[in-house]
Amino acid sequence: MDALIEKLKTQIIEQLNLAEVKPADINPDAPLFGDGLGLDSIDALELIVLLEKHYGIKIQDPKDGKTIFQSVRTMAEYIKSQGKS
């Protein structure tokens, strides 16, 4: 799980152009939206693209996004649960 979390951090930084953020700056349990990384609605769409592009996962129900994208850890757990890690 830790290796997947670290990989995800790098992919998020690259996909979202977070040029001033380093993987070590991202707390895997911190909220991705709001107080955490301060991502916006376009970033949310980019995270959906990231899951599809790198892990072949399509989120069928947009309501699931709120749980999946809560933090880097919840993203990693979701990827594992889909057997795609």
Partner: peptide, 8 residues
């Protein structure tokens, strides 16, 4: 894989 961040 169109990027929403590019499209905007």
């Amino acid at each position: 894989f169109p990027s929403p961040a590019v499209f905007v």
